[in-house]
Nucleic acid binder design. Structure first.
Lengths: 86, 86
DNA sequence: CAGATATTTAGACAGATTTCTAAATGCTAC
DNA sequence: GTAGCATTTAGAAATCTGTCTAAATATCTG
């Protein structure tokens, strides 16, 4: 697992975004409703998550939907587990 | 689990330190042998891990031994797991 | 096409992080 | 107590990060 994943998880706003996406995939506008910062800032956080391969995107007309990249999550969990397990 | 834990894990050198401590507790001098940076820098990284409660310390004479805080590791793993599990 | 909404990009700034050197502190042993 | 090794603290420099405003790009609708 890349360093990008750990860096992406280091910010509480980004972890909150992941938790929101755990329930269902959401458009940027939907995600935005849960935060006080600007759209530009949200876009930056989403970019960090995307580069870490933690989320995927899909355009649906005007909207872009973000979703957890479930195929990577398994990998992330086992890497995290092996970091600690003795 | 606090934000401090995630921030502590965001640095590759600190993750490497944790992996070393997974095998056995070590003095600062022993840990130092695995890294190119200065003792002051190592001391800083150890401080971050300590504040995140990921490691414990014990003085043995001249040396200070660092060890994984195993009681916290369980907590960290389950928090991490719940961040992703659907 | 023109206007409205959705999202990203560019550029700037403040604060945090990593690293260093130099100095301080703590312990051991002569 | 002085010398030496182990570790931390202080302070500074360089880089990185989170945030903003303003502008650009993309899509939809009339």
């Amino acid at each position: 697992m890349s360093n990008e994943v750990f860096k992406a998880l280091a910010d509480p706003h980004r972890r909150r975004i992941l938790q929101l996406l755990k329930k269902r995939s959401m458009s940027v506008t939907d995600i935005q409703k849960h935060f006080a910062f600007t759209g530009a800032t949200l876009s930056h956080h989403l970019d960090v998550l995307k580069r870490a391969d933690l989320v995927t995107t899909e355009r649906r007309g005007q909207f872009i939907h973000y979703a957890l990249n479930t195929s990577v999550i398994e990998e992330v969990l086992s890497a995290f587990y092996s970091l600690f397990s003795c």
